[in-house]
Measured scan of single mutants.
Amino acid sequence: NTKMVRFKKGDSVGLRLAGGNDVGIFVAGIQEGTSAEQEGLQEGDQILKVNTQDFRGLVREDAVLYLLEIPKGEMVTILAQSRADVYRDILACGR
Rank of each mutant, 00 (worst) to 15 (best):
Q53P: 03
G44E: 08
V23R: 10
G57A: 07
V50A: 03
F26I: 12
Q46K: 07
L79Y: 14
L58R: 03
L48Q: 01
F55W: 08
A63R: 04
V23G: 14
R56V: 08
Y66L: 03
G44A: 01
D22F: 03
I90V: 14
G33Q: 04
V86R: 12
R56T: 13
L68Q: 15
V59F: 10
Q53N: 03
G44T: 01
Q42H: 06
L91I: 14
D11E: 13
R56W: 00
I47Y: 15
Q53V: 12
L58K: 07
M75D: 12
S82P: 14
E69P: 05
F55D: 02
K3F: 09
M4A: 08
L15P: 00
I47H: 10
A80D: 02
V59N: 15
D89K: 15
L41C: 03
Q46M: 14
Q53C: 12
R56A: 09
D85A: 11
R83P: 08
T2F: 15
G40F: 10
R16I: 13
A36I: 10
Y66N: 08
G57S: 10
Y66Q: 08
R95S: 12
Y87R: 10
R83H: 09
M4W: 07
E37Y: 12
K49L: 03
V27I: 12
G73R: 01
V23E: 11
V50L: 04
D22N: 08
T34N: 10
S12H: 13
R83Y: 04
F7Y: 06
K9P: 02
D22P: 09
E37A: 14
A28V: 12
G40W: 06
E69V: 07
L58T: 01
I90L: 14
V13F: 09
E39S: 15
L58C: 06
K49E: 11
D45A: 01
L91H: 11
K8V: 13
Y66F: 11
S12K: 12
D45S: 02
S12P: 04
L48C: 00
V13T: 10
T34C: 15
E39M: 14
I70G: 02
F26Q: 02
V27T: 06
N1T: 08
D85T: 11
L67T: 05
R88Y: 11
L67W: 04
A28S: 10
E39V: 14
Q42M: 13
A36P: 10
L91Q: 13
R83M: 09
K3I: 01
V27E: 02
Q38E: 13
L79Q: 13
K8D: 04
I30V: 14
Q38M: 14
Q31S: 13
I90A: 11
L17R: 03
D54Y: 07
V86H: 14
F26P: 01
F26T: 09
L48I: 11
V86Q: 10
R88F: 09
E32H: 12
A92W: 11
T2Q: 10
S82E: 13
D62T: 09
L41H: 04
E69I: 07
R6G: 00
A84D: 10
G40P: 11
L79H: 15
V23P: 00
Y87S: 10
G44K: 01
L79F: 14
A80T: 07
K9D: 03
F26G: 01
N1R: 05
G14Y: 04
D45Y: 03
T2P: 02
K72V: 05
L17Y: 01
A80L: 07
S12Q: 10
D62R: 12
N51V: 04
K3S: 00
E32Y: 00
E74W: 04
N51Q: 05
Y66H: 10
I25W: 05
K72C: 06
G10K: 10
V59G: 15
E69W: 03
C93I: 12
L68M: 14
Q46G: 04
A63H: 00
Q31E: 15
E32R: 13
I78G: 03
I78P: 00
C93D: 14
D54A: 05
A92Y: 13
L58F: 07
E39K: 14
A92E: 13
K3G: 03
V27K: 11
R56S: 10
D62Y: 00
R6N: 07
L91E: 12
T2I: 15
L17I: 08
G20R: 03
L41Q: 04
K49S: 12
T34I: 09
R60V: 15
K3V: 02
T77L: 03
R16V: 12
L41Y: 00
Q81P: 00
N21L: 14
V76A: 06
Y87T: 11
V5R: 02
S12R: 10
R83W: 02
